[in-house]
Amino acid sequence: MRRRVGPDQQAVPWPLGVPAAVAVLFLLVPLLGLVVRAPWRGLHRIVVESQVVDALRLSLLCASAATLISLVLGVPLAWVLARARLRGIGLLRALVTLPLVLPPVVGGVALLLAFGRVGLVGQYLHGWFGITLPFTTPGVIVAETFVAMPFLVVTVEGAFRAADRGYEEAAATLGASRMTVFRRVTLPLIGPSLVAGSVLCWARALGEFGATITFAGNFPGRTQTVPIAVYLALEQDPEAAIALSLVLLAVSVAVLVGLRDRWFSVGGAP
């Protein structure tokens, strides 16, 4: 039996309501603490004098580059995962989305073993092309891409699955080749999910810490991103750490606001 309650007066049973309220407090109080304890007076001085600007610029640059690479490689991958009728596609999906659940530090170690100077691939990159990735800015981008790309792939793959195949069939009967269908019909149809996936990916890359510090280290101006700067500043200059954290919080809030309309339409075609 279900008790019928009007949509506006849906009563919340206390065994659900109380834990929900605790959860809300738990999530919001730390952020409140950050805002309350922020050195608002000296904020300007800290931002200008410390390495905040350098770290922020590096963070934005690397996160954007990582997102770009994720788009170029991840969207085709998402399409293959959603559409290709290959054996073992389920296993492939599990493998490429592993970084979603893998501890980032482990990812960093794995990247070192693969792209380090004596790594599986790294020795040839270094030996043949003179390319060294670890402890460089490109290394930061590689680490962030490794961690963030699966977010884009998972979001976009869901959209490819949910998109109405009828539109693609209609395009084909109008004479569009498969690439034209993809470019002129499929991609525009999943546009909202593409944006949502990119933003998720970018936000994840921006906050990346574990894999980056493991693979790229901590060189101010070269590999020191904002999260790493925050962690190190906490010991020497707590006020700067709080200021940097505020900057990241502001960026996150901006992302959330920008996504508010699209967040819930992930995977849905208009």
């Binding site: 069939e169 209609a170 009967t173 109008l174 019909v185 525009p188 149809l189 546009g191 075609a269």
Partner: peptide, 14 residues
């Protein structure tokens, strides 16, 4: 061959 679909399937973004 031209096919007019039952639900028309006009491209919503165009």
């Amino acid at each position: 061959v031209g096919l007019v679909f039952q639900s028309y399937l006009l491209f919503p973004h165009l």
